[in-house]
Design a protein around this nucleic acid. Sequence first.
DNA 1: CGTGCTCTTTGCGCTTGCGCAAACAAGTCC
DNA 2: GGACTTGTTTGCGCAAGCGCAAAGAGCACG
Lengths: 229, 229
Amino acid sequence: MNQSPQSMRVCEGSLFSDLDRETADALLNAATYRQIAEGMTLFHQGDAPSQLFQVVTGLVKLSRVSTDGSQTTLRFMGPGELVGCVAVFQQFPFPATAIASKPCSLLCWGASQILDLIHRYPPVASNALKTVGGRAREMIERVTDLSAKGVEARLAGVLLRLASQVGRNSPDGVEITHPVTRNDMAEMTGVTYFTVSRVLSAWQRQQIVRLGRERVIVIEPHRLAQIAD
Amino acid sequence: MNQSPQSMRVCEGSLFSDLDRETADALLNAATYRQIAEGMTLFHQGDAPSQLFQVVTGLVKLSRVSTDGSQTTLRFMGPGELVGCVAVFQQFPFPATAIASKPCSLLCWGASQILDLIHRYPPVASNALKTVGGRAREMIERVTDLSAKGVEARLAGVLLRLASQVGRNSPDGVEITHPVTRNDMAEMTGVTYFTVSRVLSAWQRQQIVRLGRERVIVIEPHRLAQIAD
DNA sequence: CGTGCTCTTTGCGCTTGCGCAAACAAGTCC
DNA sequence: GGACTTGTTTGCGCAAGCGCAAAGAGCACG
């Protein structure tokens, strides 16, 4: 694990926030660095939580199948984000499946190692707590959105979230591309991809977005924000 | 704070799990004990997280209003449960409002004290992490239910959850009563209370439940479980 | 004991979003 | 280039659940 100290700064809001040199080193030394090809799965829903991951580069999709077999995409996880934290810290089977949507490089910790580190370094525990808390808050937000907001508002929210997380700037606006399909948006919004397509088409007619295959360009984010309410 | 050691044993799966005598005492000594009348609010959504609560007796309702003004009931919190943990541990404004649905007795900690305790006693941090993780898991579950399952399945789940949490045994089955109204069930399920009433009426016709004002008696839990899928 | 309040039920019309089928792109692999 | 795969769009009919209105049922209070 020979990674420069600066690289820790990338990991804002994660396990590495505000650590002294020694603690950060202990954390880094306990990790292994791994490359993963697109399409490989990090873990399956229901697996024992044996490893914790931090995305360094690439993109991981977290999805979940409910008892009746239908898929839900919980979210995408990009650089700096901790994949599997809820399960590992709680020693509970993974509630979702994690698949690399793009080739990824990851930091990996064994469950027992990371629990030990947490126990030994209070600042790490504090960071873990904040990360898990953030996840909880995010899900609370989604629960209220799902039960209170209409489809358009939810989809607008998903689009904005995706734009800020996996979007790239393009001349016309922020571009959401490749691994994210209409289907993903549908699963994140809790509707069918037919509905997503229809709503997006309507927005294209209003010049709010521009569409293409595996491509949505957000032209007027503020109008989306307004729709998301 | 003169509470007998046994009383800690009640608080299974909470901050007090598996603590040695000294740590548990420190935790208890830092807390104040408070009584609250029915209808009083512990905190409002958006408030700075200045206090953490543990319900000792009574029942607290956690609800949230979304941007468009509609209410969502996140859950009820009964004896042993930590109210406000996500916000306090993360030092983020309360994402919901907490109101006493029944007269309550509570243990209260100031935010800074509890954060200090967490920092000083790793086992407490570990418990906090588990509690928040549990909340996150619960919300993940609800997100997938909301986006994948139909209304009946969701309502069946809510009913079972309520039965096990606030239900009392009665000759005919488990009885969900007083502070819980159809409206609450509706907000927990993400539907209107009209729909709740209609579905419950249908179930009553099938002898799955018996209904009354502010009262649902679950006669056949296994059939609900089956509907909940 | 009636009045008022809150919670609940039910009927009816209607909107929203789903389900399916079919057609249409845009790559990709021989 | 042609066949195939995968993702997307669109039309049409349908069903689930909403919204409103109106009425019923407990319960509390004077």
